[in-house]
């Protein structure tokens, strides 16, 4: 197949995921508007950062008044998982130029990775397929963010108290399906404790980053604990003493 056909195939294969990404995009746009971001900031974030959950986290942190450095560091740790995706797809693209791989990397998301990895199992790997898949998500994500921003602006400010909860509700909707085993549950409980203590006693908004890094360590420790003794210790809530 030609480069152009590969690009198109990648794009069309990703349409179903693009549509589901749009729902998140609309939520992102509405929340960003409610947080007081300008339309330019909404578009700039989708164009240059281009990472779903981390953009929503950034919007919430900016709304809370977090400093730019803690926002950047928090986004960085949320997006560390990209290393896994890149490491997993790179062997398929080892015969291609660095330049095209640098471009592909910019457009890589969880969704385009999943579609492309699946495609490469049965077809000749091509960076252009990967790029087409990434561009699909890029367009759906960008456009739906703008759509959400514009439709959110018709919500009257009188109901802000109600809509402020939309952030928490959206994050709950993302978080709850992630809790599949005990170590993740332990992480969540640890983060709840650290973040509550942190927001009361640590100046600024650093508690988000501190809870993110610290609770992950607690989760990691919990996942390393083997056997009934460890489980019992966890259930007694020993991990909560950590903070």
């Amino acid at each position: 197949m030609t480069k152009r056909n590969e690009l198109l195939k990648g794009f069309t294969d990703t349409i179903p995921l693009g549509i589901s990404v749009s729902i998140y995009g609309i939520v992102y746009g509405v929340l960003a508007g409610k947080a007081g971001l300008s339309i330019f900031a909404v578009i700039a974030m989708s164009s240059f950062v281009f990472a779903g959950a981390s953009q929503m986290a950034a919007v919430q942190m900016l709304a809370l008044g977090s400093g730019p450095i803690s926002v950047v560091l928090t986004i960085f740790i949320i997006n560390l998982r990209h290393y896994l995706l890149a490491a997993s797809i790179a062997p398929y693209l080892k015969d291609f130029s660095t330049r095209i791989k640098m471009v592909c990397a910019y457009f890589m998301t969880d969704e385009s990775y999943a579609v492309t990895y699946n495609h490469f199992q049965k077809n000749e790997p091509s960076p252009f397929y990967f790029l087409g898949s990434g561009l699909n998500i890029y367009l759906f994500w960008g456009a739906s963010g703008v759509l959400g921003y514009l439709s959110g602006s018709i919500i009257p400010p009188q109901v802000n108290y109600v809509f402020d909860f939309a952030f928490a509700a959206a994050f709950i909707g993302i978080l709850v399906p992630m809790i599949k085993d005990m170590p993740v549950l332990v992480t969540v409980i640890a983060s709840a404790a650290i973040s509550i203590a942190g927001c009361l006693y640590i100046p600024g908004k650093w508690y988000i980053l501190i809870a993110g890094i610290g609770a992950s360590l607690v989760g990691y420790a919990a996942s390393s604990v083997k056997g009934p003794a460890g489980q019992a210790a966890l259930e007694k809530g020993e991990v909560l003493d950590n903070e």
């Binding site: 790179a90 978080l175 993740v184 992480t187 969540v188 983060s191």
Partner: peptide, 29 residues
């Protein structure tokens, strides 16, 4: 890691640690 293509392996412990970051940050928000 995209351009290092297969020359670098991520330590499994780091992979494990990274899997807890998203739920931890979301909870803190």
């Amino acid at each position: 890691l995209m351009i290092l293509s297969g020359r670098k392996e991520i330590p499994p412990r780091l992979v494990k640690y990274m899997s807890f970051i998203a739920p931890a940050v979301l909870t803190a928000l």
